[in-house]
Computed example of a mutant assay.
Amino acid sequence: MHPRADTAADVSRFTRTERWIHRTTAALMGVCVLTAACLYVPPLAELVGRRALVVTLHKWSGLALPLPVLAGLASRAFRADLGHLNRFGPHDRTWLRAALHRDKRHASRPAAKFNAGQKVYAAWIAGATLVMLATGLMMWFTHLTPLLWRTSATFVHDWLALTIGIVLAGHIGMAVADPEARRGMRTGRVSRDWATRQHSLWRR
Rank of each mutant, 00 (worst) to 15 (best):
P68L: 13
W60T: 05
A36G: 04
A37I: 14
G30M: 01
L67D: 07
G72W: 04
V48C: 00
V69K: 08
G62E: 05
L47W: 15
G72P: 01
V69H: 00
L34E: 03
L67Q: 10
G72D: 00
L73D: 00
L57F: 14
H58C: 01
V33M: 00
K59E: 04
C38K: 06
L53G: 14
V55W: 05
V54Y: 00
G49Y: 13
S61C: 02
V69E: 00
L70E: 07
S61T: 05
W60M: 00
L63P: 06
A52M: 11
V69L: 04
L28T: 08
R51P: 13
L28D: 02
G30C: 03
E46I: 13
A71L: 09
L67A: 14
A71M: 09
C38P: 05
L57M: 12
Y40V: 15
S61Q: 01
G49I: 15
V31Q: 06
S61Y: 02
L67G: 12
L65S: 02
R50S: 07
G30T: 06
P42Q: 11
L39H: 11
E46C: 13
G30D: 00
V41C: 03
T56V: 14
A64Q: 04
V54Q: 03
C32A: 10
M29H: 05
T56I: 13
P43K: 02
L53H: 15
R51E: 14
P68E: 10
A52S: 06
V54K: 05
R51A: 13
L39W: 12
P66Y: 10
T56D: 13
L57I: 14
P42R: 14
L63F: 15
G49P: 05
L44C: 06
A64N: 08
L57Y: 01
V41A: 00
P43I: 09
G72E: 06
A64M: 09
S75D: 07
S61V: 08
Y40M: 12
K59V: 12
L34Y: 04
A71Y: 04
L67E: 11
A64R: 08
W60R: 09
S61M: 06
A74N: 02
L63W: 12
E46K: 13
T56Y: 14
R51Y: 13
G62P: 05
G72K: 09
L73A: 08
L73R: 03
L53N: 15
A45N: 03
M29Q: 09
V31E: 03
C32G: 04
A52E: 05
A37N: 05
M29E: 10
L70V: 14
L39Q: 11
A37C: 13
A37F: 13
L47C: 14
L73I: 03
L39I: 13
V69A: 10
L57N: 02
E46W: 15
M29L: 11
G72M: 09
A52L: 02
A52N: 06
T35C: 07
L34R: 05
A37G: 12
A37W: 12
L47S: 14
T35S: 01
P43L: 11
A37Q: 12
